[in-house]
Write a protein that binds this DNA or RNA. Structure first.
Lengths: 116, 116
DNA sequence: TAGCGGTATTCATAAAAAAGCATAACGAAT
DNA sequence: ATTCGTTATGCTTTTTTATGAATACCGCTA
């Protein structure tokens, strides 16, 4: 089977780091968005098909590494509590998605000139 | 601890895919380059600190998915045999590294304008 | 023809990552 | 006080991934 031009596609990922530790990537941004939408870590985890435990650990790690709270959590209360994305968190999400989009456009443009 | 602008860095990876299967990324390109330099999979694996088994499997997978040989192998012979990167392989390496470099430059440029 | 070093392949084992389960703490509403 | 759904956490099990050992094959060289 002969390889023809256009047979190869390109994928990419970007991540935000704080002092060489991964802060977040596409998956965690999606988790943050779902927390924002659902109002709880457990509902967001369920929606993503991941274990609550893992989602909770991710949030914990993100809050620690960011040096600021990206997600605030409330214990007990009317509906048992919940979790909410802070303004800092929303800004980080926006920055990430903006960069991701621009990189995607750049790569698409580059591919036209690259002979693969 | 307050988060200051510039506290966050960005990392990225790009991959070449053929029909939604990963063909290669930064690690495999490095392996190819080492094979080209050393003339054998086993020496390249040792230099990368990975098992021969894994390196061999990666080469196998790349050759299959590329639809063309990126690495040719020779059994037996003067020094027991060896492995060599084909012209196709070299071109793919070059394309990958060129794209990777351009993306790095683009992201660096973008970060100046992005407020994170 | 015996030896050398690399490719090719299987099998069992180890290490690491993810998932699953169970349970306590919490606090507003009733 | 009871109920409720969530956060929070430890412990066990499962799954995935990587590693290591062992073996056969290959072809040049001495």
């Amino acid at each position: 089977m002969k390889r023809r031009k256009g047979d190869i596609s390109v994928k990419f990922r970007v991540w935000f780091f704080t002092k060489d530790e991964k802060l977040l990537g596409k998956g965690r941004v999606e988790l943050l968005e779902l927390i924002d939408e659902k109002g709880s870590i457990s509902q967001a985890a369920k929606a993503m098909g991941m274990s609550y435990r893992q989602a909770w650990q991710m949030v914990q790690e993100m809050n620690e590494r960011a040096g600021r709270l990206l997600v605030e959590k409330k214990l007990g209360g009317k509906s048992g509590g919940g979790a909410f994305v802070t303004e800092n968190g929303r800004q980080l999400i926006a920055s990430f998605k903006a960069l991701e989009k621009r990189v995607a456009q750049f790569i698409a443009k580059e591919l036209k000139g690259l002979n693969i």
